Simulated scan of single mutants.
Amino acid sequence: MARVDLVMADLSDKYDDVWTSVAPAFKRVYEREDSRMRTMLASFHERLNTLFAFMNEKNRVNKHYNAEDSRQLLDLIIEMDEARETLKSVGLDFTLVPTYQAVLDQCQEFLVRSGGSTIPDDFPIITVERYEPVFITTDSAMASRASTGKRFDLQLVGEGSYAVVHKFFDDEAGLWFARKKAKSGLTAKDLERFRNEYKVLKSLNFPYIVQAYRYDKAAECYTMEYCHSILDAFITKHNASLGFSTRKRIALQLLYALNHLHSKQILHRDISKRNILLKEYEHPAVMVKLSDFGLYKDPRSELTHTGSSMKGTIIDPTLGRFKDFDTLAEIYAIGHVLSFIFTGRKSINAAPEKIQAIISRCTHTDTRTKRYPSIGAVITDIDKLTPADWKPTKHRR
């Protein structure tokens, strides 16, 4: 028996009996995940939520987290770390979304095994996620098996200026993949940009950025994870029924992705509602996947220069030359997308007051320095929004 089969058999022995005790809500969240890890991840998520909810209660009451619960959370952290290390040995992996990982990092600073744990005064109330997965799986062994699509029935998904995207189903993996292929006749410079897009996606390992798997140089195409829809179509389709909490989660996931990019000194330079993909789970749960890095800028690389002529979808009117594109220009585009997420309208002046204040600060044109200085600053204000700040209007389109 191959090593991967032995590892997965051990996981089955350990977690399969747990499946019947996992609440249906968590089973639904992970029903599209790899069947080999579905039970384990659903169990981890449910236990984390239970422990986090009790921590919120104790944070509000007396700042004392009980000893038994402290031990349970510490043991769960160890259990998750051990599971991840075991899976990585056979080319499998999972990551925890940034919001939950940040909580665990903070918890490990004050949790103790005996006598209970004192919750710090500045420890925030945890946002407990019940409707979307907090674990994201990566199967590198499976990804390497998913070829460029030559063996599979390709179905057209979309087409852009430089590439065509198809989807295909891999029976062995039991999953859909996307294949992005450079169009014939591209200039050498554009083809190099296409290859660089793959390289940057391959180098990024983040839940809210689309994952690239394998490049086929002979066919000039690469495989990546398949996403069900784009932001533009999803919001348009569901705008009448989409609630505040889902819109806020979409906005924050997009901002987390951009914050991660900017922390690596990378600018996307083409943020738009058509370059943001969504993986759909049971409605209305979705996960943002930022895509289309053809115009990205890495100041550490000479290969990402795109000249002075203006490019991209949402153009900052205060930007004189495209090569001068900076964080403030990215934030301008973000303002337009945030407006669409919260209103479903093309106008950037249609949001309720507090949301409109955020959008207006992102898109300020009289004085660029009045814009948010960083993505992190935008996240802070979006995170503060409550349902009372968003009042859906009649006949919204």
Rank of each mutant, 00 (worst) to 15 (best):
S241A: 12
T138S: 09
E330L: 05
D216L: 11
M55D: 03
E68I: 07
Y222T: 12
D216M: 13
A357N: 13
L51G: 03
V200S: 04
T386N: 07
T343G: 08
I136H: 04
M8T: 13
D17S: 14
S161T: 15
T86E: 04
A329Y: 00
I78V: 10
V164N: 03
I315Q: 10
P284Q: 03
N56I: 05
A25Y: 00
K237D: 00
L261P: 11
F135M: 06
E282S: 07
V18T: 12
Y296K: 11
R214Q: 14
A146Y: 07
F244Q: 14
P387V: 07
H166F: 06
I250W: 03
A357M: 12
L191W: 02
E197Q: 13
F94A: 02
F169C: 13
T393L: 06
G158M: 05
D13F: 05
G115A: 01
H45A: 02
D10Q: 14
G149V: 10
D366W: 03
G174A: 09
D16Y: 04
P387D: 03
R214I: 13
E192A: 14
A285D: 02
P352G: 10
Q211H: 10
K199A: 12
V288Q: 08
V200N: 04
E192F: 09
H64F: 01
I125C: 09
I77T: 09
T363F: 00
G307R: 08
S291I: 02
G115N: 02
T50W: 00
Q253N: 12
H64E: 00
L261G: 07
H364Q: 10
L6V: 12
C221V: 15
L290E: 03
F54E: 11
S144A: 15
I375G: 01
Y208C: 08
H228S: 14
Y65P: 01
K180R: 13
S161W: 10
A141E: 08
S309V: 07
D383Q: 09
G91Y: 00
F322S: 06
A102Q: 14
E330G: 04
D17H: 14
F44H: 09
K63I: 03
T318Q: 05
F293E: 02
E109M: 09
P284Y: 01
A182S: 13
R249Q: 12
C362A: 05
V61W: 01
P124I: 07
Q72N: 14
